[in-house]
Simulated scan of single mutants.
Amino acid sequence: MRIALLLLCLTAFAFRTRLDGPDKPAYRLYTPKLKATTYIKLLRQAADADVVLFGELHNNPICHWLELQLTKDLQSEKKGNLVLGAEMFEADNQTALSDYVQGRTTGKELAQQARLWQNYDTDYKPIADFAREQHIPFIATNVPRRYARQVSRQGLASLDTISAEGKRQMAPLPLTVDLTLPGYEGMMKMMSESAHGGSSSSSAANPQGATTDMTANFARAQAIKDATMAHFILQNLKPGQTMLHFNGDYHSKNFEGIVWYLRKQRPDLKIVTLSSVETPDPDKPERENQNLADFVLAIPADMTKTY
């Protein structure tokens, strides 16, 4: 009888422990050194910045929800001095995006006139609609994909042959690309190892060989995107404004990519970066996520996806 009672008590205690366990947060925010911080601190620093680079995971709903919240709150804080920009819209679609945001066209017309991402309706339309409602300028900052594809196949020199109109849709040429930056170097290494079946016997830094040319051009294609986004951010930013820019995490994490090109032209610029990571336990971020950005957004690894 006593043993049965003891087992019953232990079972009840275990069940109670599960019910009284910690919350399951949808996200946590951290400083570069992975000290817990708050959304209000992110908002305050963002409102004081010239440029905020929100490095998202493209199919993560928490990223998109927080982007929308930050947009709404910055609009309240900046009182009309907010500008939006996004990798998800390419420079040659600026007219279509502006027409929609300024209320001259419908969503159906935008879909017909612009190259929208597959997750536009679920993930970016809420932001575009808020910009439309609030009359917030929205800048298409990315290079047209055909030019990035051209660089990945033929190199940067191939851009010399495109039209003057095409050149207005990207960062000014000739473009400086530092392939020794860790982000680009890591990309080339990954591409090289993939091309050699996981072997790292061929270095991506070696200027010889077709595989090396391919990996270097792949990194240069990434760079033309980074440089073009930085170019259109600066071109559309006025004193006193904050540009909130949405881009894939890779384009701004480790303070590289877009950040490097912004700093190259405007070293005095106040930039705030946010890097998104998925982790088994958002309350215990891995050390490898240190110093990714001014704010690290930790999201459960099993978070549902938008596509």
Rank of each mutant, 00 (worst) to 15 (best):
V259P: 03
Q69M: 14
A216L: 04
I139K: 02
T279E: 12
D281E: 06
F138S: 05
A219P: 07
P22F: 03
L110Q: 06
E165Q: 06
G21E: 11
A26V: 15
A216W: 07
E87M: 03
Q134L: 02
F218N: 13
H135M: 08
A36S: 07
P32T: 11
Y39R: 08
E165V: 13
S192T: 15
K33H: 10
L74W: 12
I127W: 02
L262K: 07
D129V: 14
Q265N: 13
S200I: 06
E193N: 11
G103L: 09
L74A: 03
A230K: 00
D123H: 06
Q75Y: 13
A49H: 05
G85S: 11
G197R: 13
D213Y: 10
N59P: 10
I62Y: 05
V151R: 09
M229F: 06
W117M: 08
T161M: 14
G166M: 01
W260I: 00
R132P: 02
Y100H: 04
K79L: 11
V151G: 08
M187W: 05
T273Q: 12
T106C: 11
G257R: 01
T106I: 11
A96C: 06
T31N: 07
I233Y: 04
R220D: 07
Q118K: 12
P32H: 04
A298F: 09
M188W: 05
V52Q: 08
V272E: 01
E90T: 14
Y147W: 14
K72T: 14
W65Y: 15
H231F: 02
P137I: 06
N289I: 08
A46C: 09
I224E: 00
T38K: 12
T161V: 04
I139D: 01
Q112P: 05
N81E: 06
I162G: 00
T105C: 03
F255C: 11
K225M: 04
S202P: 09
R149H: 12
R16W: 13
D226N: 03
D226K: 03
H64L: 05
E56C: 08
L68W: 02
T122M: 09
A140Y: 03
D178E: 10
L244Y: 15
T95E: 12
D249N: 15
D281M: 05
N291R: 11
L269Y: 05
V83I: 14
D121A: 08
T11I: 13
L116P: 02
R115C: 02
S192F: 08
Y27N: 07
K24R: 14
M214V: 14
N289P: 08
D20E: 15
S98E: 06
M229N: 07
A298G: 08
I233N: 03
A36W: 02
M188A: 06
N81S: 06
L179E: 07
I139V: 13
R145S: 11
A164C: 04
L274I: 15
Q241R: 10
G85A: 10
D226I: 11
R132V: 05
A26G: 13
T17A: 12
L237M: 10
Q112G: 07
G186M: 04
S275T: 09
T37I: 13
A96W: 09
L66E: 06
G85Y: 01
